[in-house]
């Protein structure tokens, strides 16, 4: 799963597979981080956005 696990080989298959996986996980992670930080910031500013 990580480059330091001993089965890891820096070949094309590993790079494509894990590249795609970590790319997707990063998007989810960064997206949620953005939402949480912005929500905290907005709340501190006293705004109450309307999503309906």
């Amino acid at each position: 799963m990580f480059p330091f696990s001993f089965e890891w080989i820096w070949d094309m298959v590993h790079m494509v597979f894990h590249g795609a996986l970590w790319y997707a996980l990063s998007i989810i992670g960064m997206g949620m981080t953005y939402c949480i930080i912005k929500a905290a910031y907005d709340s501190a500013q006293g705004s109450k956005g309307d999503h309906h």
Binding site: A24, I27, G31, C35, A39, S43, K48, G49
Partner: peptide
Amino acid sequence: PFFHNLTHNMHEIMAVFAATGAFL
């Protein structure tokens, strides 16, 4: 307010999550 804003923000970028979901 925090949860309300969080929901609002998540709706804003839901297309990104949906695209990632479709890819996966």
